[in-house]
Amino acid sequence: MKPITLTTLKELKRKSEKITCLTAYDFSFASLLDRAGIDMIMVGDSLGMVMQGHETTLPVSLAEMVYHGRCVARGVSRALIIVDMPFTSYQESPQRAFASAGRLMQRGGAQVVKLEGGEPMAETVRFLVERGIPVCAHLGLTPQSVHQLGGYRVQGREASAAERIRHDALALQQAGAGLLVLEAIPAELAKTMTAELEIPTIGIGAGPDCDGQVLVLHDMLGVYPRPSPKFSRNFMVGAPSVEEAVKAYIGAVKSGAFPGPEHGY
């Protein structure tokens, strides 16, 4: 099968076909996800929590993201690989972001880099895209800002906050972002934004109407020892193997069976 590209994802959005994504951090799981037919693999800085045992994503370094991205890339032939830009690797300046993104692409196997933040990051997004680096933006609950947000809380419930997120999304799209992750926002807001935007939206705790869905692998396999978020689901329940659990997740997203009302806000 042909490798997935940003063009593929835009075509899936146009045809109203759901996009599937899971996180992975190593060769073995990346190989399994790719074999199962996942559209995108996200090498998330969530590895700081599920692999390293930290309370937040903040301690993760750029060198660690390069290492895990490189491990994942060795196991993938079809899925699009998105690698998170960790805290402090891009916020200082567009030039700093370009240097970090360049390392992730040259040495870390990234095909797309992901960064958090709204309109203030639009200049950085434009700087990267104009220099050949595809960008996935991330709005809503942005884990690198957990202390500023006051914890892992739903964003965009008030009208003014919802309008701010919509405004940020349009600014990031105009700056050249090719994808947008929407995390922990009201389902109706995500539905409205998905209809307004030309670029695909990937939801995590953002209801069923995003163009695609992503979960943290360790949450959807039920192996993370700490409580999983409301918007996740353990697909290992009733599955005879990890690969079958992943295929069940892919099938549930593609059919619209996941996420259900109980997984949203």
Rank of each mutant, 00 (worst) to 15 (best):
I4F: 01
T7F: 06
K10S: 11
K10E: 06
E11L: 00
K15P: 05
K15C: 10
S16D: 13
E17G: 08
T20M: 05
C21V: 08
L22S: 06
T23A: 10
A24N: 07
A24W: 06
F29Y: 08
F29L: 14
F29M: 15
S31E: 11
L33K: 09
M40I: 15
M42R: 05
G44W: 01
G44T: 03
G48H: 04
T57M: 02
S61I: 07
S61T: 15
L62Q: 03
E64M: 09
M65W: 03
Y67F: 12
G69F: 03
V83D: 01
F87C: 15
S93Y: 08
F98I: 10
F98Y: 13
A101W: 01
R107E: 15
G109L: 03
G117K: 10
E119M: 12
E119G: 07
M121G: 09
A122G: 04
L128E: 02
E130A: 13
V135M: 04
A137N: 00
A137E: 00
L139Y: 01
L141Q: 04
T142Q: 13
S145K: 15
V146R: 07
L149K: 11
G150M: 11
V154Q: 11
I165M: 02
R166I: 12
D168P: 02
A169W: 03
L172V: 02
G176L: 00
I185G: 00
I185T: 01
P186K: 09
L189Q: 04
M193N: 04
T194I: 03
L197C: 05
A206K: 02
D211N: 15
D211W: 02
L215M: 14
V223I: 15
V223K: 12
Y224M: 13
S232C: 10
F235Y: 07
V237F: 06
S241L: 13
S241R: 14
E243A: 15
K247Y: 10
I250E: 11
A252Y: 06
P259Q: 09
G260V: 13
E262F: 03
E262S: 06
G264F: 12
